[in-house]
């Protein structure tokens, strides 16, 4: 089970909330202060991408952010309900796809451990960070 799970309507105004919650939970879990900025940005990118996919595919639904604290890693999973991957490609315009690519470039540039997958309901981005033992003890 996730330590904290957040579900929000796929709207741009809620992405900031997801960033703030993710950073707060990560800090508490002992993720190093120096990578919190990156984590916040990566979560924001993943959520923005999810919101954009919903809008592009004309789908309502929610974005789910699962924050899981393990012994040595902190996991973040961002899942959308925007439909299968091919629907996104078919409906997307050039400019939107550029922004999508830029968002993914930022995520893969920032996060060492990242995996982008697709299911029947939509896409999912899984990311993880090391928990530094020193701060976890504090």
């Amino acid at each position: 089970m996730a330590t904290v799970e957040l579900r929000f309507s796929a709207l741009p105004e809620h992405v900031r909330t997801a960033r703030l919650v993710a950073a707060a939970v990560a800090r508490r879990a002992g993720v190093d202060e120096s990578v919190l900025d990156e984590l916040r940005l990566a979560v924001g990118e993943a959520c923005s991408r999810a919101v954009a996919l919903h809008q592009r595919n004309g789908r309502d639904g929610a974005v789910r952010v699962a924050l899981t604290e393990q012994e040595k890693r902190f996991l973040i999973e961002v899942a959308d309900e925007a439909g299968p991957a091919h629907a996104a490609g078919a409906a997307g315009g050039g400019g939107q796809e550029d922004e999508d690519a830029l968002g993914l470039a930022v995520i893969t540039g920032l996060v060492e451990d990242v995996e982008v997958g697709h299911g029947d309901d939509g896409g999912v981005i899984r990311m993880s960070w090391t928990i530094s033992p020193a701060s976890a003890d504090a």
Binding site: R19, R40, L41, G44, E45, S48, D98, E99, L102, G103, A105, V106
Partner: peptide, 9 residues
């Protein structure tokens, strides 16, 4: 305080 890829775009 914060800039993401949408801002870059």
């Amino acid at each position: 305080d914060f800039l993401d890829s949408t801002g870059l775009g």
